[in-house]
């Protein structure tokens, strides 16, 4: 079903809206939640919470890009849940993702300024714009969707170790960009 039609169902307060949303985007949303929270019930709840939030938000909200907006909601909610419960979540994929992203940051002792989120997002967008479409997609599949390297490699028909090297270069490139941008000292 078209996004416009699904959105129309929400506006009509027709509960099929949620069913149609799940049918079209459920797999994506569950995988985003799972990549952050792991396989447990929490991921399941995270997606269900998100549906409720969508139901309560539309109307009045009318997202322009429904899929990306949904993805953001579920991602934000998953991060919140992870933060609230991180002690039990040592082995999930997010821990690994964060370790990788740590390479994009300088060591704590050299961080002397606060970084604004808005500034950081702008810098990220500027950097993403410099990448080839393929690199951008790889980076976001890993760090936005949180997909395990193996899965991305399989999808793209690439050897996992080659992909790991590619990711390493991308992280280094991001770090350099953030430093140049003045986001990092």
């Amino acid at each position: 079903m078209d996004d416009d039609k699904i959105l129309a169902l929400y506006r009509q307060r027709n509960e099929d809206a949620i069913y149609e949303t799940d049918r079209k985007y459920g797999a994506l949303l569950r995988s985003i939640a799972r990549n952050i929270l792991g396989d447990g019930a929490e991921s399941h709840d995270c997606v269900n919470d998100t549906y409720l939030q969508v139901w309560n938000s539309i109307p009045p909200l009318l997202p322009k890009r429904f899929s990306a907006w949904l993805g953001r909601l579920v991602r934000n909610h998953a991060i919140d849940l992870w933060r609230g419960n991180r002690a039990q979540k040592r082995d999930c994929e997010l821990t690994l993702l964060l370790e990788e992203l740590d390479e994009c940051l300088p060591s704590a002792q050299s961080v002397t300024q606060e970084v604004e989120k808005r500034e950081l997002v702008e810098a990220l967008n500027a950097w993403l714009a410099t990448l080839s479409k393929e690199d951008r997609r790889l980076f976001l599949l890993r760090y936005w969707n949180g997909e395990p390297l193996k899965e991305i490699a399989q999808k793209h028909g690439v050897q996992p170790d080659k992909l790991a090297r590619k990711m390493y270069r991308l992280r280094q490139s991001l770090r350099t960009a953030l430093e140049k941008e003045g986001v990092l000292p």
Partner: peptide, 16 residues
Amino acid sequence: LFDAITEVKEEYIDEA
């Protein structure tokens, strides 16, 4: 950083 990545341009998210 992970948090900020959430907010990157929607067109990039869709593209991925």
